Computed example of a mutant assay.
Amino acid sequence: MPEEDKHCPYCNSKMEYMTESFVREELRITPAKVERIHYYQEKWQCPECRKDGDGIFAESRIPAALIPHSPASPSMTVYVAMEKIGMAVPYYRQEFLMNQLGFTLPRETMANWIIYTAENYFYLIYDRLHEELLKRDLVHADETTCQVLREKGRTAEQTSYMWLYATGNDGLTPIVLYDYQPSRKGSCAQKFLEVFHGMVQCDGYQGYNRLEDVILACCLAHARRKFFEAVPASQT
């Protein structure tokens, strides 16, 4: 309340605060902001040693770059990955949106950032999760088709497969891993679960029979379909 309104309109005495009441709620949004951060490294030299012709130098420490010789920061790379993977925004649309924010970021550059961080950072986490998954008692497995463009030695029309492995509801932290393979051979699952000796729940695909020293459990969702297919449509 403005200061001039805090006086009584009848006697001009200053009013005392009593309480407040909720009136309404509104939502506001702050658009994304891009910042250019410049790093400078200080260099120092000993003046006394310089008199004797010795070059004794010291340099200040600077934060390591996420990607060498690149302007990519962790926050920028995460933003691009979240838009591409989490929100399904193609790189070409992100490139357009980046232009709206006032700078140019080619789609090829964004793709290279994701590839580099995956190979140099995320694969380490993936391998560690793989080790933990193999220690569990139950693993769910399935595979689905996908196509890859410009894959070396293969055409874009060839069918590839994404194998999926997930831990069961054992009370521990759930793990879900994707494993790309160019085929649906049972050897793909055999290699991924090579040291696993628990229960594997999957569909009736014969490729899983190549798994050794495991218990194969039928997928109840697949079995349920057959019961519904056996019931005449007029009775459903």
Rank of each mutant, 00 (worst) to 15 (best):
P2D: 15
C8L: 02
P9V: 06
Y10R: 08
Y10K: 14
E16Y: 00
Y17N: 00
E20S: 11
E20N: 02
R24I: 01
E26G: 12
E42N: 14
W44R: 14
E48I: 09
C49G: 10
R50I: 02
K51L: 15
I56H: 15
R61P: 04
P63H: 07
A64P: 03
A65N: 05
L66Y: 03
S75M: 06
T77G: 06
T77P: 10
V78R: 02
Y79M: 00
V80N: 03
A81S: 06
K84P: 01
G86W: 01
R93P: 03
M98F: 04
N99D: 15
Q100R: 10
Q100Y: 01
A111V: 00
I114R: 02
I115A: 06
A118W: 06
A118H: 08
E119A: 14
L124Q: 12
I125Q: 10
Y126E: 06
D127S: 14
R128P: 00
E132M: 12
L134A: 01
R136Q: 09
D137H: 13
H140T: 05
A141C: 09
D142T: 06
T145L: 02
Q147H: 15
R150T: 04
G153Y: 00
Q158P: 12
S160C: 15
M162R: 04
L164K: 04
G168K: 05
N169P: 01
D170V: 09
Y178T: 10
S183L: 15
S183Y: 07
C188F: 10
V195A: 07
H197P: 01
C202D: 04
L211K: 08
L216F: 13
A217T: 10
F228N: 07
P232V: 02
